[in-house]
Computed example of a mutant assay.
Amino acid sequence: MAREIPFFKPDITSVEREAIDEVLSLEGEDKIEALERAFVDKTGAAYAVSTNSGTSALHLAMCAMDLKRGDKIICSVNSFPSVPEVVRHFDAEPIFVDIDSEDFNIDLDAFEKVLEANYSKKLKGAIVNHVGGQPTDLARLYAIAEKYNIKIVEDASDAMGGTYEGKPIGATGADITCFSFSPHMKHSVANAGMLLCDDDTLHDRATLLRNHAIQSDGWDKYGNLEYMYDVVDIGCKYDVSVIDAAYALAQYSRIDQMIARRQEIAAIYDKELEGVKHVTLPVKKRDHIYQLYIIRIDRNRDGFARALKEKGVHTGLHYIPLHLMSYYKQKYGLRVNDFQQALQTYQQVLSLPIYHNMSDDEVEYVCQAVKEVAAAHI
């Protein structure tokens, strides 16, 4: 029977268990405040607003920007569905842009052309994701945004703990940066997100709307609302639970260690899989934390993935382009060939397992499986 190497497996240590036990015993510091403070301390951002998921953080970002019906937000066609979804919830319009064929991030040449073609008061900004943990060319992105006076929201779900030119993601110049603690898990052990910004107005509005737009003298340490309160807007229920915050804080305290290990694994993959027939390795253009290790298979990607699964190696696909999704295809009359780079990339990419608690033996097993499948691949 083949070994089983999952695509991702959470790394739970005594740090997480002790943090959760402390919450259950109703002792210790406020984990939610501690989590927000940890992000501010590590990134240098002025403000951190915790949420119950990365998607909630993105939606709260749109709320903070006061997005309205008919407004437009540009995003990469190679994004998770949560990105255009949070735009459509306002009856606003996502505008898709093709991708760079090497790092799979948004194509900034195409981005600027789309800006020129759609520039108006209704064009409010862009949500830009960092695929696999490698940021886009942020210096150029910010220069374009300044030229057209639009806001930039970074979906940094894959880039938590990452850097751009040595500066932490979250304080490099975006108006808002959003993170997720479980970007590629359907059934996560715990769930949390984070919104970072430097602007007082964005921070205050996100904080207000995060919990039903309630204004009050506050809550006590058990979460009980004070006697008198008011509701001043239409809000959401996006605050994170204390247990989720405790788990997230424990994970975040070890983020540098996790990144270092993923980079070690990526280096092994780079060495062992270099020159393997049918396989093209990731292109590293900037700081890369390898939240994903995305390879290309030159033909019959699905057959390659099935053969790996037969050997117990589970893989992922990042991403199916949004213009191929039934809702967006029908809503906006999009055609299969509208985004050539994204289409070709989608037909070839495959994400290999890469997570902090993979052993060297498991990594070597994945490498051997890829080599065996490649040798027999048609």
Score class of each variant (00 low, 15 high):
V313C: 04
M325H: 13
G333R: 10
H356W: 12
F339P: 04
D338H: 15
Y328M: 01
G312W: 06
V336K: 14
A305K: 15
L343K: 06
G333C: 10
G316A: 05
N357Y: 00
Q330T: 08
L324Q: 07
H356G: 07
R296C: 06
Q340F: 09
H323G: 08
R301I: 01
Q347P: 09
Y327S: 09
L334M: 12
I354C: 00
G312P: 04
L317T: 14
R296A: 07
I354T: 01
P321V: 03
T345M: 05
H323N: 10
Q330Y: 07
H318E: 11
H356R: 10
A342Y: 01
S351Q: 04
R335A: 08
L324A: 09
I354E: 00
L317H: 13
A305N: 10
A342N: 04
M325I: 12
A305C: 08
R301Q: 03
S326C: 03
L350Q: 04
Q348D: 14
T345Q: 07
N337M: 03
L352W: 00
A305G: 02
T345L: 02
S326R: 10
L317M: 07
M325C: 06
Q348A: 09
H318S: 05
D298K: 07
R335S: 12
K309E: 07
S359L: 07
L308N: 01
Q348N: 13
G333A: 15
I297H: 03
M358Q: 14
V336H: 09
T315K: 14
R306G: 06
R299Y: 06
K311T: 03
P321W: 01
A305H: 08
F304K: 01
Q347N: 12
G312L: 09
Y355F: 04
S359Q: 13
K309H: 08
Q340L: 08
Y319A: 03
Q341D: 14
Y327V: 08
Q344F: 11
F339A: 11
D302M: 15
L308I: 02
L324D: 06
V313N: 03
V336Y: 15
K329N: 03
T315P: 10
Y332C: 10
Y355S: 01
M358G: 11
Y332P: 06
F339R: 02
F304I: 01
I320G: 05
